[in-house]
Simulated assay, not measured.
Amino acid sequence: MTTSAAAPARHALEQACAAVGLHSGGAEPVRLAENQIWRLPGQQVIVRIARAGQAAAAQREVRVAHWLAENNVPAVRLIDVPQPVEADGRPITFWEELPPHEHGTVADVAQLLRQLHSLPAPELDLGYLDPFVRIGERLQAAKTLNEDDRAWLHSLHQDLVAEWAERPAGRPDCAVHGDAWPGNLVRIIGGGRLLMDLERFSLGPPEWDLVSTAVRTKTTGAVTEDEYDTFCEAYGYDVTEWAGYQILAGARELRMVTYAAQHAASNPEWAAQAQYRVDCLRGRQGPRPWKWKGIM
């Protein structure tokens, strides 16, 4: 992102920091995207600036972070200030800076999910899981796909929504992370693992968290069969044996395809990969697993 694009967020950062008694001088951008991440040097604080209109999501994320801390689930922690703070119409939250770390493994994901899913459903307003959130908007934005492929994806979307509504019984609902994969978990150098990216927490079937790793094995081959066996052993369950697996796997695949297609609309380098993913779903590239590249 350009410096000019970051300027409005820096103004919001300065306002929010002043509101909670933190110094914003020398703030360093860590990631400048729709949601921006900034570091406050010398204060061990990370500032997350969400998109305008995401106040409810930020409030839910704060509630989830407190609940995870109260239940001793290893996760990123908020600092002790009133939050979220709104500045320039954007909700802003403040987090403890992580010590040196690296990405976790699928086994790490399984262990943390097992701990998370074992907790009683929280008395929090998390909302119920929607596996298809933003799918319609993504399809509208998928301008690189032809009309036939977009119509086919719309039909697949409708079919999966109907199947989701009539899915077979599974494990009891609980708090689910919503996007559980090694990219949203870190392993602290010296010991310990932490969940990150709490914004997609909701109440729902734990199978949704497990399907992510299964799809990365069975659909894209990003996770090896041996790694998947280790994942299942660590969690104590293989979601692919559940009668509803194909429904949730289909929803996850559709999310991955439409995300790439939306991305391709503003980044031409992604057009070929988006089309390839559609071709895979439509049976033009042989059976799974397919070698999808880049954004998952």
Rank of each mutant, 00 (worst) to 15 (best):
Glu225Gly: 00
Glu225Thr: 13
Glu225Asn: 08
Asp226Pro: 00
Glu227Ala: 10
Glu227Ile: 04
Glu227Asn: 04
Glu227Cys: 08
Tyr228Ser: 01
Tyr228Pro: 00
Tyr228Gln: 05
Asp229His: 09
Asp229Cys: 08
Asp229Phe: 05
Thr230Met: 13
Thr230Ala: 15
Thr230Gln: 14
Thr230Ser: 14
Thr230Cys: 13
Thr230Leu: 13
Phe231Lys: 07
Phe231Leu: 08
Phe231Trp: 08
Phe231Val: 00
Phe231Thr: 03
Phe231Cys: 06
Cys232Tyr: 02
Cys232Glu: 02
Cys232Val: 02
Glu233Cys: 07
Ala234Tyr: 09
Ala234His: 09
Ala234Lys: 09
Ala234Ile: 08
Ala234Asp: 07
Tyr235Arg: 07
Tyr235Gln: 11
Gly236Pro: 10
Gly236Thr: 12
Tyr237Phe: 11
Asp238Phe: 05
Asp238Ile: 03
Asp238Lys: 10
Val239Tyr: 15
Val239Gly: 13
Val239Glu: 11
Val239Ser: 14
Thr240Phe: 09
Thr240Tyr: 07
Thr240His: 10
Thr240Gln: 13
Glu241Phe: 06
Glu241Tyr: 12
Glu241Trp: 07
Glu241Ile: 03
Ala243Trp: 10
Ala243Gln: 14
Ala243Pro: 11
Ala243Val: 09
Ala243His: 12
Gly244Arg: 14
Gly244Tyr: 14
Gly244His: 15
Gly244Phe: 13
Gly244Trp: 14
Tyr245Phe: 15
Tyr245Ala: 07
Tyr245Pro: 09
Tyr245Trp: 12
Tyr245Gly: 04
Gln246Thr: 13
Gln246Met: 13
Ile247Met: 05
Ile247Phe: 03
Ala249Pro: 01
Ala249Thr: 03
Gly250Asp: 06
Ala251Phe: 08
Ala251His: 04
Ala251Gln: 03
Ala251Trp: 00
Ala251Tyr: 00
Arg252Asp: 11
Arg252Gln: 10
Arg252Lys: 12
Glu253Tyr: 01
Glu253Thr: 10
Glu253Asn: 03
Leu254Glu: 02
Leu254Thr: 06
Leu254Tyr: 04
Arg255Ala: 08
Arg255Gly: 01
Arg255Lys: 11
Arg255Gln: 12
Met256Ala: 10
Met256Tyr: 05
Met256Asn: 06
Met256Val: 10
Met256Ser: 02
Val257Asn: 02
Val257Tyr: 05
Val257Arg: 03
Thr258Asp: 04
Thr258Arg: 03
Tyr259Asn: 10
Tyr259Asp: 06
Tyr259Lys: 12
Tyr259Ala: 15
Ala260Ser: 10
Ala260Asn: 04
Ala261His: 04
Ala261Leu: 06
Ala261Asp: 10
Ala261Glu: 02
Gln262Asn: 11
Gln262Trp: 07
Gln262Tyr: 09
His263Met: 05
Ala264Cys: 04
Ala264Lys: 02
Ala264Asp: 09
Ala265Ile: 00
Ala265Met: 01
Ser266Met: 09
Ser266Gln: 13
Ser266Cys: 04
Ser266Tyr: 11
Pro268Glu: 15
Pro268Ala: 14
Pro268Asn: 15
Pro268Cys: 13
Glu269Leu: 11
Trp270Lys: 15
Trp270Ala: 15
Ala271Thr: 08
Ala272Phe: 11
Ala272Cys: 03
Ala272Leu: 08
Gln273Glu: 13
Gln273Cys: 06
Ala274Tyr: 07
Ala274Trp: 03
